[in-house]
């Protein structure tokens, strides 16, 4: 497949959105988003349900196309006409969604490689190689030892935490420069939450960037370099780590909710 990597060139921002807007008919899902993510920055994205967090992520990763606005990846302008999920993959962006990122009835090895299969030149998949790498990801990267899960396990037989693990392991394997986590801890047991948070830290130490959508303020506050708050499609606050304590942040968000309803756009 594509072996040329856009990695070698140096850049300031892995992704930068300029005045990004998206409307579904009369509904403005995003309006005038300006957001830049540094090369090795962990940005927590917070906001209420329907604030536009998921829509913003989908726009950045080529799932949906915005109504207007510009996107720069590694400081280079993106042409919306050729931007797609596949292109985002090629540019080493990886999204781990809450759900809907794994095919339920398919074996694990297919889920790791779907869309980026290892094939011969006729498009036939090298199954043995994909299986071997999948087992390697399970054992070395995720520590799935002796729990009866292997490359041939069907996704529907895995727990919620195990599924997050597979999706995260996939992102690690493909060596993404920007990993987007969409509420990765939402359905997990406490011990599994710790693992996920450790992984987010390892994203930082390995020099990558991360956008981390999270409901649990304690988790993001502890991890993120910067917190971006979305409210009804707009960025309403951009807070650097250390500027606010967890208590101040919580109060700020509650105040926002109350004031927001009074002055919010029609």
């Amino acid at each position: 497949m594509d072996t040329q990597t856009p990695k070698t060139r140096s850049y300031e921002h892995i992704v930068r959105a300029e005045n990004l807007s998206l409307s579904y008919g009369k509904v403005r899902a995003l309006s005038g988003i300006d957001l830049a993510i540094g090369k090795n920055e962990i940005v927590g994205l917070i906001g209420d349900n329907g604030a536009g967090k998921s829509t913003l992520i989908k726009t950045l990763t080529g799932v949906v196309r915005p109504t207007s606005g510009k996107l720069y990846i590694r400081d280079e302008l993106v042409d919306w006409g050729s931007y797609s999920v596949r292109e985002a993959h090629r540019l080493r962006f990886e999204t781990v969604y809450q759900e809907k990122s794994l095919g339920e009835k398919q074996p694990l090895w297919r889920n790791i490689f779907v869309g980026r299969q290892i094939t011969n030149r006729f498009g036939f998949i090298k199954v043995a190689e994909e299986r071997r790498i999948a087992n390697d990801i399970l054992k070395r990267q995720l520590g799935f030892r002796g729990v009866g899960i292997d490359a041939d396990s069907t996704i529907s037989k895995l727990s919620g935490g195990e599924r997050q693990g597979i999706a995260i392991g996939r992102a690690m394997h493909f060596d993404s420069d920007l990993i987007i986590l969409d509420e990765p801890t939402v359905a997990l047991a406490i011990s599994e939450v710790r693992k996920v948070l450790d992984f987010v830290r390892s994203i930082k130490t390995s020099g990558r960037a991360c956008i981390y959508i999270e409901h649990n303020l304690a988790h993001v506050h502890e991890l993120a370099d910067r917190l971006v708050v979305l409210d009804r499609g707009r960025i309403v606050a951009d807070i650097k780590s250390g500027e606010m304590t967890l208590e101040q942040l919580t109060k700020f968000l509650i105040d926002l909710q109350h004031s927001g309803h009074a002055v919010g756009p029609a």
Binding site: V63, S84, V85, R86, H89, T95, Y97, K100, S101, L102, G103, E104, K105, Q106, R110, V114, G115, R116
Partner: peptide, 16 residues
């Protein structure tokens, strides 16, 4: 197979 499993998953995985 992935399209039959879930269109959303297939699309997110980069399947056209």
């Amino acid at each position: 197979l992935f399209i039959g499993d879930s269109r959303t998953v297939a699309r997110v995985a980069g399947v056209n």
